[in-house]
Design a binder for these strands. Structure first.
Lengths: 213, 213
DNA sequence: TGAGTGACTGATATAGATATTAGTCACAAC
DNA sequence: GTTGTGACTAATATCTATATCAGTCACTCA
């Protein structure tokens, strides 16, 4: 299916909340493609379920054979973009760089993805913001993957001797993510649009100094 | 005057933007007291300039002999609370504690003040939020004072040998304030209400590790 | 000349009637 | 049993007429 190719991992484990009927039905993919296009063009609020149904040549009632609600469709689309952001971040750190470099690249990648979404696909950004602010399921997925990524980098850095080993691992990782929230959280992104590369670089420098052995 | 006693420093330098007529006129004080009470009770949006005027026994037109606009009154009130928060912070670090302790106390004080405002005076908090988000004048004042406070603590810590001296002072201070934004910025406060003492403590620990010589 | 105001305007908010929309269900066609 | 829908309801959004409000100004009164 078109849509599942764009997902990493098992799409059903991550995005199947609010789904109805067969998970791999072809119509589900058509609904999601239509939803993606409509959310991009009109935004989440102005998109109607009837419009979605019309776009793929069915009646509105049929949509509800595949999704619990309009929000469930929104979550599925938001999840795709959240997964894209996470995938890009994982790809950015999957190389031969040092642990400090990886941490730097991780946050640069996430912020870059978010800022791009903010500027290039504002309608989608607004929806993803809602997802984060209202703590949709996809937000949990995002947080878990980010936590895991940070943890793996810090662990690696500790093993290689690049990072200190005294502070408890979980505290360190929580604090790092908290520090970076002022760049990653949608509610803050708007205040850092002008000079985020410099400000973020300085913040990562601080984080790396805190990790020094 | 009642109101100026509650200010530290020169109130005219800080809050006189949008003022009209004599700065020390007794009516100005009455307007501000009425405004403070109305903003507390009804919020900024639901408070009317006519209501303010009626409360002190004058007509609405007279108010405009003292303030450019309703927002100017709002700024003056927001400034009072911003100044209170800053004063509390300065008081919290004016003791014989070590520099690391001071940094810890500084951020604890600011967050505490903000959270208290959030819970106890929600209407005022909403107004102060607007002031910060829309970058009113009082926000500049707040930022400048906070920057100065952080800088003085870091400088002192560097002199005493408690903090490292390699990183440029201004970069260090900017990064520290950026890191703490996820607790100080009104847009983020709501997401950290549940466990801010623990999360903030961990973040300050990280900052202090980054400052270690 | 300074203190104070009624009456005015354009912009904004409110309210209530109207129209869309999300979501369900019984049912038809195959 | 699977695919698909028209008709329905309750909730929500949109529209519009009305009222309120921010802000000004010419004016009065002392």
């Amino acid at each position: 299916m078109e849509y599942s190719r764009r997902m990493s991992g098992n799409i059903h484990d991550m995005a199947s909340e609010g789904w109805r009927g067969p998970a791999d039905h072809i119509i589900r993919g058509q609904i999601m493609e239509a939803a993606d296009a409509h959310f991009r063009q009109f935004g989440y609020g102005k998109t109607t379920v009837s419009g979605l149904a019309g776009a793929i040549g069915f009646s509105k009632a049929y949509i509800y054979k595949f999704f619990d609600s309009k929000q469930a469709i929104g979550e599925a689309i938001a999840m795709r973009h959240v997964v894209e952001i996470c995938d890009a971040a994982e790809k950015a750190v999957k190389n031969d760089k040092t642990s400090p470099e990886k941490l730097r690249l991780l946050f640069r990648s996430v912020t870059k993805s978010s800022v791009d979404l903010f500027f290039l696909e504002r309608q989608l950004y607004d929806m993803v913001s809602h997802a984060v602010v209202e703590d949709w399921h996809c937000n949990r997925v995002m947080n878990d993957r980010m936590q895991a990524l940070v943890e793996s980098i810090v662990k690696e850095g500790r093993l290689s001797g690049a990072f200190e080993r005294k502070t408890p691992l979980d505290e360190t990782c929580r604090a790092i993510r908290q520090a970076m929230k002022s760049f990653c959280h949608p509610a803050m992104l708007a205040y850092n649009l002008d000079n985020w590369p410099k400000a973020q670089n300085e913040l990562v420098n601080l984080v790396l100094r805190s990790l020094a052995p």
